[in-house]
Simulated scan of single mutants.
Amino acid sequence: MKLITVQRETIEEKRYTPKMGELFTKVTYIKKAFLSIPIKTIHKYRETYYGEVKDCEACSLAR
């Protein structure tokens, strides 16, 4: 049995970008878990409408 695992979770969130305004996008979180309890978010990224993968730092949750 592994004590520390890495889990991926995809959630649809509302994001805001200056160029496009508000948009709903799928955000994937990569989390470190200890005994299936999430401890820390290692990385999060989103996929654009054109299939590109971008870091979530480029857009914010609110205006």
Rank of each mutant, 00 (worst) to 15 (best):
M1S: 09
M1V: 05
M1W: 01
K2C: 02
K2L: 05
K2R: 13
L3P: 00
L3A: 06
L3Y: 06
I4D: 02
I4N: 02
I4F: 06
T5A: 08
T5V: 13
T5N: 12
V6L: 14
V6N: 11
V6Q: 10
Q7R: 14
Q7G: 08
R8V: 01
E9N: 15
T10R: 07
I11A: 04
I11P: 01
E12P: 08
E12G: 00
E13P: 06
K14D: 10
Y16K: 08
Y16G: 06
Y16W: 09
T17E: 04
T17L: 04
T17K: 01
T17A: 10
T17W: 02
P18Y: 01
P18G: 06
P18T: 10
K19M: 11
K19S: 07
K19P: 00
G21T: 09
G21Y: 01
G21C: 09
L23V: 15
F24C: 03
F24Q: 09
F24A: 08
T25G: 05
V27R: 01
V27S: 00
V27C: 09
T28D: 04
T28Y: 04
Y29E: 07
Y29D: 01
Y29A: 02
Y29S: 06
K31L: 13
K31Q: 09
K32E: 09
K32I: 09
K32G: 04
A33K: 13
F34T: 06
L35A: 08
S36I: 01
S36L: 05
I37F: 05
I37C: 09
P38W: 02
P38C: 06
K40W: 10
K40I: 12
K40P: 00
T41F: 00
T41Y: 01
T41V: 15
T41A: 00
I42Y: 05
I42Q: 08
H43A: 05
K44E: 14
K44C: 11
K44A: 13
Y45A: 12
R46F: 05
E47V: 15
T48V: 08
T48L: 02
Y49E: 12
Y49K: 14
G51E: 13
G51M: 14
E52F: 11
V53Y: 03
V53K: 15
V53L: 14
V53N: 07
V53A: 07
D55E: 14
C56K: 01
C59S: 11
S60F: 04
L61T: 07
L61M: 07
A62R: 03
R63C: 02
